[in-house]
Design a protein around this nucleic acid. Structure first.
Length: 289
DNA sequence: CGCCAGGGCTAGC
DNA sequence: GCTAGCCATGGC
């Protein structure tokens, strides 16, 4: 992987197993928007960048080589060999199809706090509305960042939401989840949960810590573990994943617990990758609906 | 109108 | 340990 800087953009050669649509539309993140030219613009680490891939060449606008090596290549998981992962998963017939469909998915390494709040909001919700709620919160309590002729907003820090009230958050339209967002901010600010320590724990222990926060149950915890803490042995099981697993393997009325047991046996430490290929495949093709 | 959405909480067994 | 009903919101 060779990276060069030209003016305010970084160009990376030899990009494989990376498709922006697959990666940004597979439900793992809520802060990236497609532009008319097929590129994507989004906010992370308090910075706005725009990405485009053309013939194995990744162009990142509005960044530096320093930032690329310090966090973007980590954020986009560019140093992982997805070819090897896909080969191992593709031994299964169904996964072979799912991997072939979402061949360019990379599991992002998102910021834990933003990921945590995002997936609290995701519970019993739909993706377009989740994106809108996160946008609302960022515009109200985040910091403005100019890029091109637009203004973007960083996601607020825990202290920015600390001591806010239900009335303060009512504008964002997240309903009963407002209470959970406030509890999460309190939990972090008061040290009831230390996000920076979670990566040192194994998945099971980290999940227990996360579930101390109101609004974080097993599924939301697994999403936070997978999308921001590099825990790849989890298999977040929502209605779509339960349906697709029931449809192809376990019977339509399978329980979440049986899906968890099966995925652990079948996929082991690649469960998280398998889950993303299956989720994207199932949701895009509306399998089981 | 009812049903559903990347579920979780609570009460009741 | 498990399940049933409830929960704001908004699109269909």
């Amino acid at each position: 992987m060779k990276a060069y800087q030209y003016n305010n953009q970084v160009v990376i050669e030899g990009i494989k197993d990376f498709n922006l649509t697959h990666t940004f539309e597979c439900g793992q993140c809520f802060r990236w928007d497609r532009e008319q030219d097929g590129s994507y613009t989004g906010v992370a680490y308090g910075k706005v960048i725009n990405l485009k891939i053309n013939k194995g060449l990744l162009v990142i606008k509005n960044t530096s080589l320093e930032d690329f090596h310090n966090f973007w290549k980590y954020y986009f998981d560019l140093e992982r060999d997805y070819g090897a992962i896909k080969d191992r998963l593709s031994k299964d017939e169904v996964l072979e199809r799912a991997v072939s469909y979402g061949w360019g998915i990379r599991i992002l390494n998102q910021e834990t706090w933003e990921c945590l709040v995002s997936f609290i909001i995701s519970s019993n919700n739909i993706i377009p509305r989740i994106k809108k709620i996160i946008k609302n919160i960022s515009e109200r309590y985040g910091q403005p960042i100019g890029f091109g002729d637009k203004v973007y907003y960083s996601f607020p820090q825990p202290q920015d939401l600390y001591n806010k009230t239900m009335d303060d958050l009512a504008f964002c339209r997240s309903g009963y989840r407002c209470k959970y967002i406030l509890d999460a901010a309190r939990a972090v600010c008061e040290g009831r949960i230390v996000l920076d320590q979670l990566k040192e724990l194994d998945s099971s222990a980290a999940r227990k810590e996360l579930m101390k926060v109101q609004g974080i149950g097993p599924k939301v915890a697994d999403c936070i573990l997978l999308f921001s803490l590099q825990k790849y042995d989890v298999f977040p099981t929502d209605v779509w994943v339960r349906r697709v697993m029931g449809h192809f393997y376990l019977g339509e009325d399978v329980s979440i617990k049986d899906v968890q047991r099966y995925s652990a046996e079948q996929y082991g430490n690649l469960a998280g990758f398998a889950q993303q290929y299956l989720f994207y495949y199932a949701r895009e093709l509306k399998i089981g609906r």
